[in-house]
Design a protein around this nucleic acid. Structure first.
Ligand code: FES
Ligand code: FES
Lengths: 146, 146
DNA sequence: CGTATAAAAGATTTTAATGTCTTTTATATG
DNA sequence: CATATAAAAGACATTAAAATCTTTTATACG
């Protein structure tokens, strides 16, 4: 519901890098994929998009890997969603009719519109930093597959 | 976002039958598919599931087609969602981690849980009848793809 | 420079949702 | 019963997301 797997992988990957950034400067994809129990190469492609959008940094070669940059912690979740899933969903009709149009509301428009707005607002307000706050071992446990 | 196309087709199909039920006893799939601009055979399969779950009635042969039954109008939308998409989505973690578990909340749990509950409640409370109420030509226009 | 390391990129496969086309089954009516 | 009609069912195709595997590129370091 709501999001693709890619979005989940992206959020969890970014958070894992954030949680590890005290201990090590860079985190490798192999470690992330293993700890999150996520397919390595698929995650790699998603992380690559994340880097292209300057949400994380990366370097190739020995001692390379993924790392936070000066902006990472202040990135809102909706930016991550934009990279992985796009934001068209917020302007589309929930019944898939066309672009949502309050002038010609579909039968579920009045139910869905407030929920959609709330979701958009929540994702816009919540930053990576908000999610990284709190008990660290617990968080690492919670972003792992179980 | 939120739902599959199948759900949208199902809701619109049921509503079209409901809106036509004054004028004609039964509505054929060809007419529904044409008016909603939806692929006929795909819609047929979805309508078939809807009939199997007693949300609508159908009869084969001449003068056959789909029709309301005594329960149709009081069916909540969540029942339709269950038939087309299933309801597992409401117990799964929004990040796709596993079953959502408030004891071990994922980083977006506190953002998502209220939204999910609200959506579930809205879909549980809204019946087909609620959606059929109102200006009929306008509704027919609004469930069409145009 | 040569080598090892790690991300990036590319090619291919799998899976589920969606869509199309054909055949079968049920039924109303003459 | 014969025929036409319309849903149901089945087989197959397409598409996008997800996953896997291989090759290329960049870089640290001896
Ligand atoms: S018109 Fe369907 S959600 Fe707004
Ligand atoms: S644990 Fe992720 S939404 Fe509840």
């Amino acid at each position: 519901m709501f999001f693709t797997k890619s979005f989940g992988y992206a959020v969890r990957g970014i958070l894992y890098v954030g949680l590890m950034s005290n201990e090590k400067k860079r985190v490798q994809i192999d470690e992330i994929a293993e700890k999150l129990a996520v397919p390595k190469h698929f995650l790699g492609k998603i992380m690559n998009k994340i880097v292209k959008e300057h949400i994380l940094d990366s370097t190739k070669g020995p001692y390379g890997g993924f790392s936070l940059n000066k902006d990472t912690l202040s990135i809102p979740l909706i930016k991550v969603l934009e990279v992985t899933d796009g934001l068209e969903q917020f302007s589309m009709c929930a019944l898939g009719l066309r672009k949502c149009n309050p002038e010609h509301p579909c039968p579920v428009h009045h139910e869905m519109e407030p929920l959609r707005s709330n979701l958009k607002r929540a994702l816009t307000n919540a930053t990576i930093n908000d999610l990284v706050a709190g008990n660290k071992p617990e968080l690492i446990r919670n972003i792992s597959a179980f």
